[in-house]
Amino acid sequence: MTIDWAAFTPWAALAGGALIGLAAAMFILLNGRIAGISGIVGGLLNPQAGDITWRIMFVLGILLAPAVWLLAAEMPSIQIDADYPLLIIAGLLVGISTRYGAGCTSGHGVCGISRLSPRSVIATLAFMATGFLTVFIMRHVLS
């Protein structure tokens, strides 16, 4: 293993992580809910009365984050190398699997681990493992 020290951004990572944690904290303390993106978005595809507006407001907040950011600073780099077919396959897989597995990086990886949920620890280990494996195969076996 070689560490890419030039790309390593420890302070931005910690500060950004703390903000993500703050969002998770706000949501449980104020709304009494887990800030899990796949669950919040997925719930909009099976809408229940009285359970829609908060989801839309949360998603709007995320979507408008870049616009608010631009008021203060330049947009950081967002580099998407995957081509369209790969993006479609990846998106379908992420959509169906996160609903099937009841969470993603935010619900299991941040909130679940923060509340010491054994289910979320297992889920996080599982998706990290296949994430590492998939990138290994894509970058070092297939190419």
Partner: peptide
């Protein structure tokens, strides 16, 4: 299985 599948999709893009 859901989490394993999610990791694959995450790693693809």
């Amino acid at each position: 299985l859901g989490s394993l599948g999610f990791g694959i999709g995450w790693g693809l893009a």
